[in-house]
Amino acid sequence: MDLNQLRCFVSVADELHFGRAAQKLGLLPASLSRHIRLLEESLGTRLMARTTRSVSLTEDGLVFLEGAREILTKTEALQQRFHTSRQARADVLRIGAIDSAAAGLVPMLLHDFRQQCPDVSTQLSEDKTIRLIPKLLSGSLDLAFIRAPDIVDPKLKTMFLFHETAVVAMSENHRLASRASVRIEDLADEPLIVPERRSRPHSHDLTMKLFIEAGLQARVAQLAEEKQTIVNLVAAEIGLAIVPQWTSRLAVSGVRYIALDMGGTAAMNKLPLSVAWLKGVRDPGRDRILAMLQDKLAHYAELA
């Protein structure tokens, strides 16, 4: 028994005529008769009494008709509910972003995107990569700006964008705060506020790698998870922090952001930013913003 058989049965019950019911459904009478026969065989009972001149429902047919109508009504309501939901989602592009991208790249991108596509609304969700990826996989996000892990889920497609510039956040009262730039050697023995590796492996490894390459050992004074917390700890003079340049857009009084002279070290490539989305899902709005992102990528990279 399937929904198509139920629709055929209800149509014949309404018309009490195979020819008219077949025409209503766009079927040949023979095909309609076959659907009814298969339905009766699956139920093990006769639902209709047919002669060359008339069609009538049996007692079982009358009972079955009530249940069939109820099933079809609920099915159509469910289909309409999801159709409406898909239509609503099609007009809203759900974007996820790590904090530095949410502060830097995404506002510029959305400004440009709305000028080109004013008919598409956007919804922004800021979170860590380890939380954004499951949201992509579940379908609750359409695309996300992340630090791509070494092994990416095969259901996702990623596109590398650029490496973000690192700067040093320090209290405006720090002895180095008047400098235009600093080197890692200038930060020897300075207390550092470092992101927890579990939640921010790229940012954590950047700090560790920079000191290792300089032949120094990082002096970790405090671990913290959120960028806002890290910057607030810097303002409280707990220590310094190496952060993405776009973090400087966080308005925290008493904090200066000093350029970091890395001297061309390999660690410069420790803050990669990528965009990711679910494979095999058609989304015109997502594809439009990805195309625009590729077109303007060189401009955005200059500001990173």
Rank of each mutant, 00 (worst) to 15 (best):
R50E: 06
G215E: 03
R282K: 11
A90I: 00
V10T: 14
D119Q: 15
E164Q: 13
K128V: 03
L6W: 04
A166F: 05
R69G: 00
F82A: 03
D2M: 07
L47M: 03
L93G: 02
Q222F: 11
P191I: 15
D205H: 09
E59H: 09
N232C: 08
S121P: 04
E302I: 14
R183H: 08
A21E: 02
G44R: 04
L25T: 00
V167N: 04
A13N: 02
K279E: 13
L143D: 01
S56P: 00
T265E: 09
R179P: 06
E302F: 11
H202A: 13
L303T: 10
R197K: 13
H204S: 10
A166D: 02
T45M: 12
V106N: 02
V168F: 09
R282E: 14
R219M: 12
F162C: 09
L278F: 11
A68K: 02
L78P: 00
Q80Y: 03
H83R: 15
Q23A: 04
A304S: 15
T73L: 09
S140Q: 08
H299R: 15
H204F: 14
R200S: 12
L43E: 03
A214T: 01
F211A: 09
L141P: 10
E225C: 04
R282W: 10
S85N: 03
M170S: 01
Y257E: 06
M208S: 04
G104I: 12
R94G: 03
A169C: 03
G26C: 03
T58Y: 02
V167D: 02
T122W: 04
A22W: 07
V231K: 09
A177L: 08
M159H: 07
H299L: 15
R46P: 00
L27G: 04
N173D: 14
H163D: 13
G264N: 13
L78V: 01
E59F: 13
V243F: 10
I242K: 03
P134M: 05
I98F: 12
S140K: 10
I151T: 11
P118Y: 01
A30F: 10
H299T: 14
S85L: 08
A49N: 09
R256M: 03
I184V: 15
G67Y: 11
T58M: 05
A22K: 03
L216D: 07
R131E: 08
M208C: 06
S140P: 06
E40K: 07
L137V: 08
C8Q: 02
V168T: 06
L43W: 01
